[in-house]
Design a protein around this nucleic acid. Structure first.
Lengths: 189, 189
DNA sequence: GTCTATAGTACGATAGAC
DNA sequence: GTCTATCGTACTATAGAC
């Protein structure tokens, strides 16, 4: 349960963020959120219109945080290859999966344009960032002239998102790391 | 609703397969399964011990089908590169996601070793198949000598699984295709 | 083997006291 | 703002008739 120094609405959002990550939207009940936040039914319906509204606030915050973390490594120091490597190797709680990407497997998220939008925008922004870096690397002769920035960016993002799937299937982060190493070996050659 | 020429237990398994694909384990209720199968509560609890038992039968069948489809293209004709390309480009209902991989985002599947096992085994077998093909290609000089079969196989599988994530996030199969083209361009160079 | 009835709990939301 | 009480429905499972 969250500290009472946090406002009730903050505690609700943080509890929802955790539960969405752990159990997804369909698997997260208002009751579970309220228990974790240490709040009653009334508080939730005072601050939010309902479960979808609270989830939207939680998803937006998680999406912003993820984008900021990705931007931090991608716009950091180093050559284009090094920045992509830094993104691929950045610290991750692999077995927990991606707090944003996992939402795409939730039927109620996909059914709602409003809930899906932050997910789409976040992945799209990261892809654009990576695409720009690849194009930069091409000009420096670091990547072959025939590779396409947008496509490689999609591959990089997909390798990460799919790496989570392989890791969770096997119950070990090893498969995630293997996928990343494989991609880096291809980017190097 | 399924044809009555199928046995009740068959209809239950097929309905469960569909619903697991569409809504995941947590999002699939026995009631929804029974409605789709055109059966009553008693039938389900006669043929299966409960929701987890029925889901296990459904997951096993879906996993077998997926493995067979993957084996078909991977052991088909063509050079190692061509077989991997055939796997990556094989017909997929991209926006529906992977019926096996999507289960890794389900908390109740991950919490149960029994339900997770068919998922793990299926992805593992496909990875082994691809790894062997890559090693074969290395001997033929089709892939660089410094690439590792297991790693590239993880990258290939992750690109597919992550491609579904990107496609569902954007509501379009385009991102999946872009990721695949990016990976193929890297494998070629 | 299949059905309906029913159980007990949880779902998501509202009402109204404080 | 926050609480408890309550609503009507759905959840997973069991019982027992046919």
């Amino acid at each position: 349960m969250y500290s009472r120094r946090m406002s009730t609405s903050e505690r609700l959002i943080e509890s929802t963020r955790e539960l969405l990550w752990e159990r997804g939207y369909v698997g997260t009940s208002p009751k579970a959120i309220l228990e974790r936040a240490g709040a009653g039914q009334g508080s939730m319906y005072h601050h939010f219109k309902g479960k979808p509204d609270l989830a939207l606030a939680a998803i937006r915050r998680t999406a912003e945080e993820l984008l900021a973390a990705a931007e931090a490594v991608l716009t950091g120091p180093g050559t284009p290859y090094e920045r992509i490597e830094a993104y691929l190797r950045r610290e991750r709680d692999v077995l927990r999966g991606c707090p944003v990407g996992r939402l795409t497997m939730d039927p109620d998220i996909i059914a709602s344009d409003e809930l899906r939008a932050p997910v789409d925008e976040t992945l799209d922004r990261i892809q654009e960032l990576i695409a720009g870096i690849v194009e930069e690397g091409k000009e420096l002769g670091q990547f072959g002239p025939r590779v396409d920035g947008e496509e490689i960016a999609a591959t990089v993002l997909a390798t990460v998102q799919g790496g989570y799937v392989l890791a969770r299937a096997s119950g070990s982060p090893a498969a995630f790391d293997a996928g990343v190493r494989g991609l880096l070996s291809l980017l190097r050659s």
